[in-house]
Design a protein around this nucleic acid. Structure first.
Lengths: 208, 208
DNA sequence: CCATTAACCGACTGGAGTGTCGGTTACGAG
DNA sequence: CTCGTAACCGACACTCCAGTCGGTTAATGG
């Protein structure tokens, strides 16, 4: 509201961007079926018909948002990962990057990760592709570590392990939404504690 | 279809049970908003109106199913957990119990863990309560281990760790749905590998 | 065999939401 | 200044679906 609302006409591309941003928020908040085009329209400062001047259908609008936000995630995480460093450091950096994304763009995180209700086959396919790519790239990143555990990074079990990592990390991010006071470092710490060290904390004398 | 379909009248309680089972399947498959009462009705071998003879609304039907299935989960897992045993054994037993539930009642797992699309406040409250209770009971179960890691089981960070555990485990179960050929033992193994030992696999010579 | 109960159904109402279409007007190019 | 493009809107057509109601008939206890 406080941000400039000249209430005037806007060039097509700018309006389109606004619509996408509004759609992101509403879809993330209500889910696909519960979202009415009207809500998106009014959040974008415009009438329903205008949405159809830019996107042919609700479905395509969602898919567009999905792909755009996923690109954003990839860029965000990719930008702050150095390919080098010790395995532990790399994992820590990745976790931090993901939590930082979750912090900056909570709606995008929700839309991309929280399981939603779309039964539409086309949407499902897009979601599946995104998820698949994500799992694959994490598996590549952890290739060395997986091998060290005796797992072929292409094997099914390795894939399962990666899926556990991702789901667990995002579960933590979800929890963070409900407890925003916790600083990011602590989250990273907690995640490393489980994923890197494990719960056993074996026979080690405490490193303190 | 093959199962007895005498097409005749049925005592109320039996019909009610059938409806709940049908509702479970359809809700789990399509999500809340995308589910039409008609689908549930026909899956239960009955007309829409009959649903309203048993439940006052779609919302209440979902809530009933949710609570019933959660009770089932608690019973299932609780039944095969021995309170005693080494911490590692207990964790392994719990994981195995959960995966066994996921195997026996995949629809129930999906309904309880996946969807987030219901905007209805009453449903959200019920879901939240279930989740809360689940987290709490897992935290209690892991109390000793958490303390060993230097975490107060009531602290926020401990809660976060538990949330990571649960989400990760369920993520693995989700993955399993798409790769059903993998035997359950292997899943448990993979989960233990990450959650118990951690990815570092430290300087240990392999314990074999 | 009869009567009462309760399981079952068909049809209707009202509301909500997607996608369409023709018209209106701001705005920038010439 | 004018004129055409493109951003914008209101209204409509159509579909789908939750919830209601009054009637029908199978089952059962007497």
């Amino acid at each position: 509201m406080a941000t400039s609302e000249p209430k005037k006409r806007m060039p097509g591309t700018a309006r389109r961007a606004r619509i996408i941003e509004a759609a992101l928020d509403v879809f993330a908040a209500r889910g696909y079926h519960a979202t009415a085009m009207e809500e998106i329209a009014s959040a974008a400062g415009v009438t329903r018909s205008v949405l159809y001047d830019h996107f042919p259908s609700k479905r395509v609008l969602l898919i567009t948002v999905l792909q755009e936000q996923n690109a954003g995630l990839v860029a965000h995480v990719g930008a702050r990962i150095t390919g080098s460093g010790s395995p532990g450091r790399r994992l820590r950096a990745t976790l931090d990057a993901y939590f930082s994304f979750a912090q900056d763009r909570p709606a995008a995180r929700r839309l991309l990760f929280d399981h939603t209700d779309e039964d539409d086959p086309e949407i499902k396919a897009v979601r599946w592709g995104i998820r698949e790519a994500r799992t694959r790239s994490v598996a590549v990143m952890l290739g060395r570590d997986l091998r060290r555990l005796g797992l072929d990074p292409d094997s099914e079990v390795a894939q399962a392990v990666v899926e556990l990592l991702i789901s667990g990390t995002d579960g933590l991010a979800q929890w963070w939404e409900r407890h925003p006071s916790v600083p990011r470092d602590r989250l990273v710490e907690a995640a490393m504690l489980v994923l890197w060290n494990g719960l056993s904390t074996l026979p080690e004398p405490e490193a303190h």
